[in-house]
Nucleic acid binder design. Structure first.
Length: 877
DNA sequence: TCACTGACTTGATGGCAACCTC
DNA sequence: GAGGTTGCCATCAAGTCAGTGA
């Protein structure tokens, strides 16, 4: 295999990063970087999905040949320059990448016209690409709004992230012959993502805890690290995915486990802990404060200071609450003992008796018919009402319940308004309830649900994720889903299969007279229950443990470790696929190009889909019409990806890739598969030959994490806490753009912006007044009357100058606020944080720069990433 | 090899409560 | 304290990918 050369690459040296008992100490880094500039943005509506989309995008922030890059401005990146940094990273060269078809924007007047706006971050671009013939284009002044997510970057970033473009575009003007990159090349010639070659010191923490069986369970609901004492893991002990079967060191091994025979999981009783009532932030601050006292003497080792408290809690807990990872035990075995209380069902339907109208007349409906009518009525103010498919599917299913001879025959003659209004008034009533009433309701609900919220896995009490059975409703498929509007019937106990430990008490069926469909004792899976999806009966709905559980944490950590391992293989993988671009074997060629796109553009794999699913695609399922080659070397992508989110991008590619795409398209129609000899199985099978366990999605994790780390390294300066947080968010935004994580613009966005602008106007008026007053004060004259006609206080020039300064700062802050709001209005930062960014990068960065981790992770994320909290400050991905 | 199943992860969204501002 | 805003969190849809058996 082409990989042979690098498949032997050593696995990372795994360094123990545990240092549990060390206090939390932060060290300030001297890292410097440029601050970002920002651009405002606005977007156009995606005609197909109705979502906000942009005209162009360049995943990974890569530049495209549509950008005007003058031959003279392009250059090779110097080896000394950051992989993300263009040697031409001048402010002017960093702003805008004029695209032939990009639209002008009102807010982009300050953007330069001749640089690589789109190319920001580039996982990899082989050399020898063609320089596009870029024409000067006045439309280059597009605001970032008119660019797709990935094409937009904060200007601070954009200053420095044009290396890709420089590689692709910055070579000679003529088409050059392809040459695979040489490994020994300078940084400039090493694939971007692989240039980040800092040696990793994997932070692995093993869970080891003791617990006392005599003490009431004491578990924080957020799953924060609370009970484990970590032991140092010897180097090499970090589990890789392939090592997943290492014998589990269970918490229960270290202490008396909860007996399986003990009845169900007992509802949690609130007990008072010395620290429990203190907000996490304060607890962390407390620890930070105390730790900082010794910061000069000790190295930073922790971000979250829960360990001391943790140990205390441990002793109190009947169940040890895992906070650190436990290695899974046995081949494919996920747990040894599992106890839980099953699932809770939604309440049965209570008829409201409000009559809908049919041809203007009230209609009597049975409770069952009324229930479905109400499901529809409550959706009257949603987009679904404009979708014929939704209405048709609804009517077909409702008709089955109405019966053939029912008076209601036609949906168009139905008037659901009375039910809609009833629903609105119920909502309003609920809103108007007093705080006490709301609290009482919440507590009542909690009381009913408490016992379902927890499971005991191998003696450890863990939070259950989705213990509530999904209520009946109308299916809200995304995009143009062919099944939208279909009735999602009520799930009953006899639909549900329970999975529980052998010997554990079978959860009582909460609905009298009914029983579970099946009870299993399968310890090779992590689900606690499942039922068949009523919309797609071949598919399942699972009940899993919460994200904060050890099982999920373990799996999460393995995911990031795998992505980290890719770092050691990536160079070889890229060499291999670059070589195969011109392979005579068409399958090899398609695999090579697909891998390149997945690596370069962070595309998803793209499994085959059935006709009864939304028509979306990923890499392997791209259609000919989704990719348009624009000579000399630009590919225009336009397709609906996961969740029917539109992906639009124009990107300059390596010449052989361009030619290969042209070849794959030849003789095919628009709707034909671009990669007709390829599917995800073949692709992943190939990737596994390159690196054990490698699949297409690993590239997304890898590129996201690498990008975060590089951006943080590059952008972090000293500065105030707020500045550091802003830097992090900027880096996070970068990743969101690469991954095309979009969100719809909130309804109140424009109102909020207007209000802020009004504030600025007011402050500016005030500023003018102060300036006049200052001038007069300097001449010893009293201030003029205010706008309201009242006399103003006679202030000293110094006091007036102070007011002017303060007002200027206020204006600046609001302007920044507007900028940030505009920049992030269509970018979803959370998704990448939850799913793609190795939390250890964040934790280590926080430690290095004295940033409290809760500034970056909320309570849920702290719980989810408990396993990452003990990482060394020196950790690198 | 392929279709299919099963088990999981990834992802956008809406509701709501906490927080902020006036 | 009212009203607006923000961010958390649950929800559930929609992906990925491994395994299996014909």
């Amino acid at each position: 295999m082409a990989v042979e050369a690098f498949s032997k690459t050593k696995l990372m040296a795994e360094v123990d990063d545990d240092d549990d008992d060390m206090p939390l100490v932060f060290k300030r880094s001297s890292t410097t970087s440029k601050q970002n500039q920002s651009n405002s943005s606005s977007q156009k509506q995606d005609g197909r999905s109705g979502r906000q989309v942009s005209d162009l995008r360049s995943p990974n922030g890569q530049n495209s040949s549509v950008q005007k890059v003058k031959a003279g401005t392009s250059s090779k990146a110097s080896p000394a320059v950051s992989p993300f940094t263009s040697p031409k990273a001048s402010p002017s060269s960093s702003r805008t990448s004029p695209a032939p078809n990009s639209r002008p924007s009102a807010s982009a007047g300050n953007q330069a016209k001749n640089v690589n706006q789109q190319s920001k971050i580039v996982p990899y671009e082989p050399k020898q690409a063609v320089e596009p013939k870029s024409e000067p284009n006045d439309e280059a002044e597009d605001s970032e709004d008119d660019k797709p997510l990935s094409a937009r970057l904060s200007s601070g970033l954009s200053k420095s992230i044009s290396s890709h473009a420089n590689k692709v575009l910055g070579t000679s003007a003529s088409v050059q012959k392809s040459r695979p990159p040489k490994k020994e090349d300078s940084d400039d010639e090493i694939p971007l993502a692989s240039r980040f070659q800092l040696k990793s010191s994997a932070g692995a923490s093993t869970s080891k805890s003791s617990n006392s069986e005599e003490v009431k369970p004491k578990i924080r609901q957020n799953g924060l690290p609370s009970t484990t004492v970590l032991s140092k893991r010897p180097p090499g002990d970090v589990k890789s995915a392939a090592q997943a079967s290492v014998k589990k060191l269970r918490l229960s091994d270290a202490s008396t486990p909860v007996s399986i025979k003990q009845a169900s999981v007992k509802p949690e009783k609130k007990t008072v802990d010395d620290d429990d009532d203190v907000p996490i932030s304060q607890r962390i601050k407390k620890s930070v404060a105390s730790a900082s006292k010794v910061s000069s003497a000790k190295k930073a080792t922790k971000v979250v200071s829960s360990s001391m408290k943790t140990k205390k809690k441990l002793k109190k807990s009947k169940y040890s609450k895992s906070s650190k990872l436990q290695p899974s035990s046995g081949e494919g075995q996920k747990w040894t003992t599992l106890v839980h209380n099953g699932v809770i069902f939604p309440p049965s339907y209570k008829p409201h008796g409000v009559k809908m109208l049919y041809k203007g007349k009230p209609v009597n409906l049975t409770p069952e018919q009324e229930e479905v009518a109400t499901m529809y009525a409550v959706m009257l103010d949603t987009e679904y009402m404009s979708k014929p498919q939704f209405k048709e599917n609804f009517m077909n299913d409702w008709r089955k319940i109405l019966g053939k001879n029912h008076v209601i025959q036609n949906l168009d003659d139905c008037d659901f308004t009375p039910i809609y209004e009833w629903h609105q008034s119920e909502k309003e009533k609920k809103k108007q309830m007093s705080t006490e009433e709301k609290k009482a309701l919440r507590e009542e609900k909690l009381k009913q649900e408490e016992k379902y919220m927890w499971a005991i896995v191998d003696g450890v009490k863990e939070k259950v994720g989705n213990f509530r059975v999904e209520p009946p409703g109308l299916f809200r498929g995304r995009g143009e889903h062919p099944k939208m509007g279909k009735l999602k019937r009520r799930i009953r106990p006899n639909d549900i299969t329970i999975n529980i430990g052998k010997g554990a008490p079978i959860p009582e069926c909460p609905i009298p007279g009914e029983r579970w469909k099946e009870v299993r004792h399968d310890n090779t899976v992590t689900w606690l229950a499942f039922w068949n999806d009523p919309i797609n009966p071949r598919e399942f709905k699972y009940v899993f443990l919460a994200a904060s559980s050890s099982l999920k944490g373990q799996s999460d950590k393995e995911k990031y470790e795998k992505a980290r391992r890719l770092k050691d293989y990536i160079e070889g993988i890229r060499s291999a696929y670059t070589k195969d671009f011109t392979s005579k074997d068409p399958v090899k060629r398609q695999i090579a190009v697909a891998t390149y796109l997945i690596d370069k553009l962070a595309l998803r794999a793209g499994n085959e889909k059935d006709d009864d699913e939304a028509d979306t695609v990923g890499c392997c399922t791209l259609k000919v019409e989704n990719v348009e080659p624009v000579p000399p070397n630009v590919l225009k992508f336009d397709f609906l990806g996961k969740d029917s989110i539109r992906y639009q991008n124009e990107v300059a590619v390596y010449e052989p890739v361009f030619k290969a795409i042209q070849l794959f398209r030849s003789g095919k129609k628009g709707g034909d598969d671009l990669f007709d000899k390829l599917d995800t199985s073949k692709l992943n099978a190939h990737l596994k030959e390159l690196m054990p366990g490698l699949t297409a999605k690993v590239f997304r994790t890898y590129n996201a994490s690498v990008t975060l780390e590089q951006q943080l390294t590059k952008l972090t300066q000293g500065g105030e806490l707020a500045e550091k947080v802003a830097v992090y968010n900027l880096a996070n935004k970068e990743v969101a753009i690469i991954c095309n994580h979009q969100r719809s613009v909130s309804k109140s966005h424009s109102v909020q912006i207007s209000k802020l602008n009004e504030k600025i106007d007011e402050l500016k008026a005030l500023l003018e007044e102060f300036k006049v007053d200052l001038a007069r004060a300097k001449k010893g004259k009293p201030p003029l009357k205010g706008a309201d006609g009242k006399a103003k206080r006679n202030l000293a020039p110094e006091a007036l100058q102070k007011k002017i300064d303060q007002t200027n700062v206020k204006i600046e802050n609001i302007e920044k606020q507007i900028e940030t709001k505009e920049e992030l209005k269509t970018v979803a930062l959370g998704t990448s944080k939850i799913n793609y960014l190795d939390p250890r990068i964040t934790v280590a960065w926080c430690k290095r720069h004295e940033v409290p981790i809760e500034k970056m992770f909320n309570k849920s994320l702290l719980a989810k990433f408990a396993w990452a909290m003990d990482v060394e400050p020196s950790f690198t991905f």
